[in-house]
Design a protein around this nucleic acid. Structure first.
Lengths: 220, 220
DNA sequence: ACAATCTTCATACAATCTTCATAATTCTTT
DNA sequence: AAAGAATTATGAAGATTGTATGAAGATTGT
């Protein structure tokens, strides 16, 4: 299991690192936003422990960045802010757990183990965009309580778009999504056709926006 | 017995999960309102353990939602609020029991067993889907009082599908059900054939739905 | 050995994916 | 502002994949 600690307080980072190493995890430490991105670029992490305060950008911004990059590691946020609003913000932003400083090492360890045990279980299972509900578990789509039949390819495209509502996906990215091997280079207009059909099933609500000469994105 | 734990504190959820798993229950965990709805959408629960505080909406709102959806699972509410008014509110809202944090695991377990005993008695032994009755004890199937002869394999498949009316079973799952060892890897079309025969005996009422490229499920 | 059940196989059918020709839109140049 | 170029949208036809079905052969239990 690979764990990345993102924490600018070196002393604290060191303590956590030792603690987790003793448990037999592979641990890396990053001390800034930019540093963290570099680590993520080189390794796949199962868990990222993320401090709210970083020298260059906030831990919350890193969280958003992670999610828009489709990094699906578990994220445990650390913060000195005890308010409920921070907890809520973190969890809504895609964090999987939240822990206030100061905390005991026993509790940290318990939460780390808990998160790792739950890796790739059911999370973020429903996405809502306007009146459209996407159920990831069952791969179903409902509009105002009515179940709409999406083909596998259509569903995959809609789900990935909807999971990252701010990101514009290139047609090439979308293509390599439904063709799990590397997509052929000859660019047909499959994606356009699928998008057309998805839009039709979504009753032409303006949910998928065309970004000319790039691809598509969800509007919210 | 299927139990759903709705609790945003992962650590606590984990503890309860382990406790109940040890007792032999099937346990799912949801960490938010929306997450819980997703779980409910794909499984029938006998008991839902519901924390008052959730990141997106309150557990009380979920309780109301459950009742308006006519979900008839038992509901045990957990809360840090010790006041009588909360207890009353929960019970009036349709909860079947209420437990204050902190509580001992022994007490939790006792209440869970007590709640399940209520439903346990004569439930799940007869399943009705439209005009089809499945008698688990005798492994008989009747349609409008007429006994229909099902072969063992056919009966097993129908029973497991009917016992989880919301779940879509993959053909592989179904296969490993009638071949109690590990199913052979070569996927024949045995399941398709059995499903065809079951459908015929059910007089082609639209009870078993095909979920393309996945498997089958019961429609109600 | 017999009957019931299970499994395989060949084929028919249906849903989905992909391509293609052409229309509509947007951007660029004049 | 109009013409031309590039990009996207669309309907329909063909190709592909997944499912349904009937019948024959294999297996099981009595």
């Amino acid at each position: 299991m690979n764990i990345l600690i993102v924490e600018d307080d070196l002393l604290n980072a060191d303590l956590i690192e030792k603690l987790l190493c003793k448990e037999g995890f592979e641990v890396d430490v990053a001390t800034s936003f930019i540093d963290a991105l570099a680590c993520i670029d080189q390794r796949v992490y199962d868990l990222i422990i993320l401090d709210w305060n970083l020298p260059d950008k906030s831990g919350y911004e890193l969280l958003e960045e992670l999610r828009s990059l489709l990094i699906d590691a578990q994220v445990l946020m650390l913060s000195a802010n005890d308010g409920v609003e921070y907890r809520v913000k973190a969890l809504n932003g895609g964090a999987d757990d939240y822990l206030c400083k100061p905390y005991s090492h026993v509790e940290l360890l318990a939460r780390v183990n808990s998160l790792l045990r739950r890796t790739n279980s059911n999370k973020n299972t429903i996405i809502q965009i306007a009146s459209v509900f996407i159920y990831k578990n069952t791969k179903e789509v409902k509009i105002e309580d009515e179940l709409i039949n999406f083909t596998p390819a259509e569903y995959e495209l809609l789900e990935v778009l909807a999971s990252n509502p701010k990101k514009t996906f290139t047609k090439f990215e979308l293509l390599s999504l439904i063709h799990n091997e590397y997509a052929s280079f000859s660019m047909s207009n499959i994606i356009e056709v699928h998008i057309k059909n998805i839009r039709k099933k979504l009753q032409d609500k303006e949910i998928i926006k065309t970004v000319r000469s790039i691809g598509y994105k969800i509007v919210s």
